[in-house]
Design a binder for these strands. Structure first.
Lengths: 345, 345
DNA sequence: CTGAAAGCGCTTACAG
DNA sequence: CTGAAAGCGCTTACAG
């Protein structure tokens, strides 16, 4: 099956390639009869202009890259796999396609070469990167080369880089959690942080501390631990906390994200502590699994669909040279009261 | 930032474009000094050959398309979102990228045009389509136009189309389920089918019937219902079954897939029937959620990762003109005994 | 070992 | 309204 070109169509229709091209691209100055004649031949022959030719004459790819930049399996968590799907759907709404790439990190030479190649050889008009630490050199390199990159959970203060687009979690969700616990009567509050290489985790950490200070609550090292992004990491951290506070348990624990909160659940259950009767737990993210956990997890929830739509549509705005595109957007959290926190006297 | 071309590199290095191209493509007849000189300039300038130029000289895209062809949200189920991830990883192992596309159906004119365009304009070397019914005209059209398409859960007997690659579930899992239930002493067995537009569902249906006949078990209409692919559909079907059999309950129910089985769980619980004490349930698929359901679901499990690796690697074999590529592969199920079936006397 | 030339499939000024 | 020509960025015979 020999590939058919605009030349072939032109010959069959008895016109020039220029005219074929004009018909395909909807030029107005083509008489209807010519147009119909050419279109008929095009359809009969299932002719589609080849991307290769179009690209060379300046056409865009209409494709954005989605890079999952952080080890672990994107598929295992409904939350993280929704990131990809949201990206695909947000792009489709603007008639863009998505080239997907799963990388274990942004550090190995092979991965760096891969991602750079994909950007540089003109395969994509822009890229969305998820799961990057806040200081990966490859990001600056891409940006320095003029590539448009959209980042989820990434932010640098006081830097104005027009081709860098970000979407982030609102930075006050920690304080929100503390306020709520304070209202419920809690004064001894423990904190389990997330992965401190991620922007959101550092912000939540600081926000927790701000909340504690505001209410003059003591910040005790024995109630403060580093977790991570997985349930396991939260479990390990919570076990340490419960083990090392010699019975002087906090009455509530703030978890930097919902996975960590589920780890806290597990550790508490091993220590015979009932949630929320013996200890209250509050999460961050709003993972749907928290609706069905027992008890259902009180959390600060974020609309990830909105976050990715915001990110992707601004990235596409920049591709299309729109003016006044907002570079950095923070999405507010929504407090979801469920059953994991209890009023104490 | 003006885009730099091989011409620019050639000038800077004091050689011809031909030589630059030869260096990039690793031709052997280049003296090391020339090679190094050119490479240095290339790296200093972050030069990457543009895909647009390479494509025109016959280079492949090294990209396969992943089309999710069936309404509903791929992200909601860990099972279905793993399909995409498995495809991406299997492709990456062969140095292919994946262009993803989520379609609600393969029927609307817009979707058909979209998918056809992606294939025809040379954006992808082949496509993998998941969730297609067994008789979508667009599939035959694509195949007829010589496009390489990989299909999951799709099969036509007695047809030899070299550019159609399939991977399917082994067709005896229904019989396996019946055999097992028979061994446990069950004689009154109900069946809830899946989406009968899918190849696997029809095969499971027939396989159940074969199993019943083999053991001379009665196939009663009142114990036989159509479900679908969702938990909700299984729930509705099971409710009908329990409602309409006037108390003459089957002692066991076969569910065409695990989601349907969870729907059966829900319906049984509403009817006050305990699993497995009052009624046994056996699924199909091996969704990990079945490990944690209560009771854990006995099922015929399939290794979806293997299935997608098999599919993708054979698709790539065909792209690369390898010989003797197996067109149709059936992956055997693995019986997973958990806690949802009980021995009865 | 290496350069000049042709060609891949398009689109777009340019000229008429 | 429409065709001939130039050009986009590469690679690959061809010739030397």
């Amino acid at each position: 099956m020999k590939k058919i070109t605009s030349n072939d169509i032109a010959k069959m229709a008895g016109v020039s390639r220029s005219t074929v091209s004009r018909v395909i691209n909807g030029y107005s100055n083509i008489p209807p009869e010519t147009r119909d004649k050419v279109m008929k031949i095009i359809q009969e022959n299932h002719y589609y202009p080849q991307l290769s030719g179009q690209l060379l004459t300046g056409k865009q790819m209409n494709t954005i890259g989605f890079f999952w930049a952080s080890g672990g399996n994107i598929a295992n968590s409904p939350l993280t796999s929704s990131f990809l799907v949201n990206t695909i759907e947000a792009a489709a709404a603007r008639r863009y396609l998505v080239l997907t790439c799963i990388l274990d990190d942004l550090v190995s030479e092979e991965n760096i070469n891969n991602i750079k190649k994909i950007f540089m050889e003109g395969r994509i008009d822009a890229g969305v990167i998820v799961g990057a630490d806040n200081n990966e050199p490859i990001l600056d390199e891409l940006l320095g080369l003029g590539k448009i990159v959209g980042l989820f959970d990434y932010y640098h203060e006081n830097e104005d880089i027009p081709n860098r687009i970000t979407v982030n979690f609102d930075r006050n969700s920690g304080e929100q959690a503390i306020d709520y616990l304070y209202t419920l009567g809690h004064r001894k509050i423990g904190i389990i942080d997330g992965n401190m290489n991620r922007f959101s985790s550092t912000q939540r950490h600081e926000s927790y501390l701000r909340g504690m200070q505001k209410h003059n609550l003591p910040i005790r090292n024995k109630w403060l631990y580093y977790g991570g992004i997985t349930e396991e990491s939260g479990y390990q951290a919570a076990k340490l906390l419960l083990e090392n506070c010699s019975g002087d348990y906090p009455t509530a624990i703030c978890a930097s994200n919902d996975s960590v909160a589920f780890g806290v659940y597990k550790a508490c259950s091993e220590y015979g502590l009932k949630i929320p009767d013996d200890i209250s737990v509050i999460g961050n993210d709003g993972d749907i699994t928290g609706e069905h956990s027992s008890p259902p997890l009180t959390t600060i929830s974020f609309n990830f669909k909105d976050m990715f739509y915001s990110l992707v549509s601004r990235v596409i705005d920049v591709i299309e040279d729109k003016e006044d595109v907002e570079r950095d957007v923070f999405i507010p959290g929504i407090f979801k009261e469920r059953k994991s926190c209890k009023h104490i006297s």
